[in-house]
Design a binder for these strands. Structure first.
Length: 729
DNA sequence: GTTCTAGAAC
DNA sequence: GTTCTAGAAC
């Protein structure tokens, strides 16, 4: 909570007094009323009004509407308000956020204290305004806490403070009581999450379905999106169940937002240590962003600076607005670039590092911060890519999964860039030659955005897919510089050994007949002996039992290790069609046949058990040779489902729905594949999307979760279930 | 794909 | 101490 300990108020601007609305949230007993009392005790500061649902009814139980009316009129009078009610879930808070326009800054202060503490306080107290005391309190608090959703920036708050202990609360009280009538607080997300949170972070966060869009406020400097489920820490299974219900509501009608999109977070290059003129730099940033932002499909660019009062951010913001740059695809963000997800809820899979020519840690600023946050893994991986960097250039470093930036923040790549130096105190200064400086800075941003584009393309984002097939040259900024080792393969450093081993294996006797050659520059694993079973079944079905249907095109068999009550495989019988990556337009009719055969079986199972729900699809990177379609019921009730890979191979974008594959192949001539790396991402319920720390807990949860499936799965026939039987239940 | 198991996490 | 994961062998 460094920010609050410093009493970071900014009374610099002589703005006229502007009221703010502070929405408190916390269980009974968390200390909301005390919080307000303590802040308001100081008469010299900002005029405050406390809107408390327990007292607003004048003896009778107050209503939410009374609170809304009360808050609106206080704000109209120019007073700042505290909304003192539990406000534990998003829906409860939403009406207050919507109450007034962007002219009133909305803050959230969450008093997120241990349940035990709130309960013991509630049980003990007498004379509570809401008359919640004694034995009943425990049950009520418990029930309420199960609904708890920590506030997120995308609900519309300019500032969020999460307090998890008394020290945090005191700091927040200090912050708000020191706030004069025209002072402004730094915006963004403040407050530590429990470091022992059970939430596993992985790349999933870039891919998961999101809250409905539309909460973005172009005036503020915060991301329009935020974390979905940091609230799952320490939840017991009951609580998770409860939150299913909430998510169920939330998932109805939600649409896919850009939060899934690949995102590059970058600092302003050369304007800190290298003293580049801010005005000129902001022109170049906006110019380059405008040039690239529409070439990047859905991918997003985010300019990040540590300070909310950052001059470069406000310059760029103003110029970007002038140029009408799509604020969903480009925005500024005040926060620590190494903690964008964990502290700011912003998902950035790629971050740029303004580094030094030696590509070494240290030197202060962003470079020191990124190297330090990423751990030694980044240094090693960087060394493997390049030994030095010249200005104007960029080098892409895939971040090993061992790096905390990868596991905690979900950063998969760091792009090092070196901008022009205008600081005479530093080596290679351009002596105020801004002609040259601007030219190099432009080149730097081009290198950066090209490098990002190459990552986006390599990840096969649908939005960029078409371009890839129009024969655009794959840019690999990282291997362009002459003074560095050329490593074309965009694989994680951590995978190098494995890949090398499998390459060596490939030379051995185990190689399958249909070449494991390199198409499109990607290394392919050789098939182990154990991986040939399906191939053999396809070629010689007569040698195998367990086959339930056979034709010239396909063989259908029960999966030997079913991962659900019903799990079968529709196997293609074409020689040389080892996996989805081999599928081309010429296989369209085969794909359709496989789909209809799979569908027929799903329908047969449905006729026997109408509560089943099926999904048909392929693994992006199968373990077994020979193209096969999985037809799997969505109960995942099976002892064979044992690990993360099992789960994620059926419940992440790694699983490619047959309907989508058919669309993609017909449109682009091949299917979009996801990397195996995503199999190590966090475990989330396929229905309510709640996160779970391990497989046993996940399985316990899914055995009873009845939440609606995400909207994505309910579309385009991705899920197969009986008409009239609602897949939501 | 599974099985086995060391050692991390609890 | 037990549970769980993840890597290697097959």
């Amino acid at each position: 909570m460094e920010a609050m300990d410093d009493h970071e108020t900014n009374s610099g601007g002589k703005d006229e007094a502007k009221p703010i609305m502070v929405i408190l949230m916390g269980a009974p007993g968390s200390g909301k009323s005390t919080f307000c009392d303590l802040v308001m005790r100081l008469p010299t500061r900002r005029p405050w009004v406390r809107i408390c649902q327990d007292t607003i009814g004048n003896g009778k139980a107050g209503t939410k509407n009374q609170c809304l009316t009360g808050a609106a009129s206080a704000l109209k009078e120019g007073k700042s308000v505290f909304i003192d009610r539990c406000n534990l879930d998003r829906e409860q808070r939403a009406d207050f956020v919507k109450l007034v326009g962007p002219e009133v800054e909305k803050h959230a202060v969450a008093l997120d204290l241990p349940a035990k503490l709130c309960i013991s306080r509630s049980v003990k107290r007498t004379g509570h305004e809401g008359n919640l005391q004694g034995g009943k309190a425990a049950a009520v608090v418990n029930r309420m806490l199960q609904k708890k959703e920590l506030p997120k920036l995308n609900e519309g708050y300019a500032r969020i403070t999460v307090c998890q202990d008394e020290k945090d609360i005191q700091a927040a009280i200090n912050t708000y009581s020191a706030l004069g009538p025209s002072d402004k607080l730094p915006l963004g997300f403040f407050g530590q999450k429990n470091s022992d949170a059970k939430v596993q972070l992985g790349i999933m966060k870039f891919l998961k379905k999101k809250d409905p869009p539309g909460c973005s406020d172009p005036v503020t400097n915060v991301s329009p999106e935020n974390i979905q489920s940091h609230t799952t820490k320490e939840k017991d299974s009951n609580q998770v169940l409860e939150s299913c219900e909430e998510l169920k509501k939330a998932s109805v009608g939600s649409s896919i937002s850009l939060e899934n999109a690949p995102t590059l977070a970058f600092p302003s290059i050369s304007t800190a240590d290298f003293h580049f003129n801010l005005n000129k730099a902001s022109d170049i940033i906006v110019e380059k962003v405008e040039e690239y932002v529409n070439k990047l499909g859905n991918a997003r660019l985010v300019l990040v600076d540590l300070s909310q009062n950052s001059k470069i951010l406000s310059l760029v913001r103003a110029k970007a607005a002038e140029m009408n740059i799509d604020s969903k695809k480009f925005f500024t963000f005040a926060g620590n670039i190494t903690k964008l997800y964990s502290e700011g809820g912003l998902h950035c899979n790629v971050i740029a590092n303004a580094t030094n020519w030696r590509l070494k840690p240290g030197g202060g600023g962003v470079n020191a911060a990124i190297f330090s946050a990423a751990g030694p893994a980044l240094e090693t991986a960087t060394k493997a890519r390049a030994g030095s960097l010249s200005s104007g250039k960029a080098v892409v470093v895939p971040l090993p999964s061992s790096s905390p930036l990868f596991s905690r923040e979900g950063v998969t790549h760091v792009i090092h860039v070196l901008g022009p130096n205008m600081n005479p105190q530093r080596p290679n200064c351009l002596n105020n030659d801004y002609d040259k400086g601007c030219k190099i800075l432009r080149e730097t941003y081009s290198s950066l955005f090209d490098a990002f584009a190459s990552i986006v393309r390599a990840q096969g984002e649908p939005c960029n897919f078409e371009k890839e097939f129009k024969g655009e040259v794959q840019l690999d900024q990282g291997s362009r510089n002459s003074d560095q080792k050329v490593k074309r393969e965009a694989v994680c450093e951590a995978d190098m050994n494995k890949k090398y081993k499998s390459f060596v294996k490939e030379l051995g006797p185990n190689v399958g007949s249909s070449g494991d050659g390199n198409t499109d520059g990607q290394t392919r694993k050789a098939w182990g002996g154990w991986a040939q079973a399906l191939y053999d079944t396809a070629m010689h079905p007569e040698r195998h039992k367990n086959i339930i249907e056979m034709s010239d095109d396909v063989v259908v068999l029960n999966d030997l290790y079913p991962k659900a009550q019903k799990h079968l495989i529709v196997l293609a019988r074409v020689e040389g069609l080892d996996r989805l990556a081999d599928v081309q337009k010429e296989h369209m009719s085969l794909l359709k046949t496989m789909h209809s055969v799979g569908l027929k079986w799903a329908e047969k199972f449905l006729s026997e058990n109408n509560s089943l729900i099926f999904r048909l699809g392929y693994h992006s990177v199968p373990s077994m040779r020979q193209l096969h379609l999985h037809v799997i019921s969505q109960d995942f009730d099976s002892n064979h489902l044992k690990n993360k890979k099992h789960w994620n191979s059926f419940n992440s974008p790694f699983f490619r729905d047959s309907v989508d594959v058919i669309d993609e192949v017909s449109q682009y001539g091949k299917a979009i594949l996801k990397d195996e790396n995503i199999l190590s991402m966090e475990l989330r319920c396929h229905r309510c999307q709640s996160a779970h720390p391990n497989i046993p807990r996940l399985k316990a949860h899914i055995s009873s979760c009845q939440a609606s499936f995400p909207a994505f799965l309910l579309q385009n026939g991705r899920l197969v279930f009986l008409e009239g039987i609602d897949a939501n239940h």
